[in-house]
Amino acid sequence: MNLFRILGDLSHLVSIFILLQKMRSTRSCAGISLRTQILYLMVYCTRYLDIFWTFNASLYNSSMKLVFILSTAYTIYLMRTVYKTALDPQIDTFATYYLVGGAGLLAVLFPYKYTVYEVLWSFSIWLESVAILPQLFMLQRTGEAETITTHYLFALGAYRALYIPNWLYRWFLEGHFDPIATVAGIIQTLLYSDFFYIYYTKVLKGKKFELP
């Protein structure tokens, strides 16, 4: 455990609370992609399957896993019930089947081992790297976002970005290297680069998030 990883995980946790707070304060899920949320639920359910048998890993890991699964399921539940009037299937249209199919293909081609758990783990890593695309696509179509939504996206993107120095740290200091997670994590962070740039140049300077 190192500082980068802790900060990354906290950023991940904070992002979920910002999203719930956004829905509560605006009484709406406008601007949030249901498709991205469903992809994240798939990511957590396939990666964190091991909560049922690895009680010994750490209480920290197990509790975080449970929180991620339950809070994302709760977010989806809220979006499909309480806040469903703000859902806009006309805007949230990214072809998610390609993302699931691509992640599935990579998982079957390059798992660390051919076991159900390892293939699903690899699938979850690749799927996570692109799960934000429906959300970013939606943002591009609307051309603007509420400030609280941009904070959510920043915290979510910062989580994987902070894992990169964590992986470097572990590689140099612990001799631990996980090529699948590292390559996918770098791709994931690159997908956020435009967003990070606009967040930095506009939102952090008090302006509204608008695409040029």
Binding site: D9, R47, D50, S58, N61, F68, Y163, A181
Partner: peptide, 10 residues
């Protein structure tokens, strides 16, 4: 050679 431990990150 030490066997690779399971996935220990989130």
């Amino acid at each position: 050679v030490e066997e690779k431990k399971g996935h220990d990150e989130l």
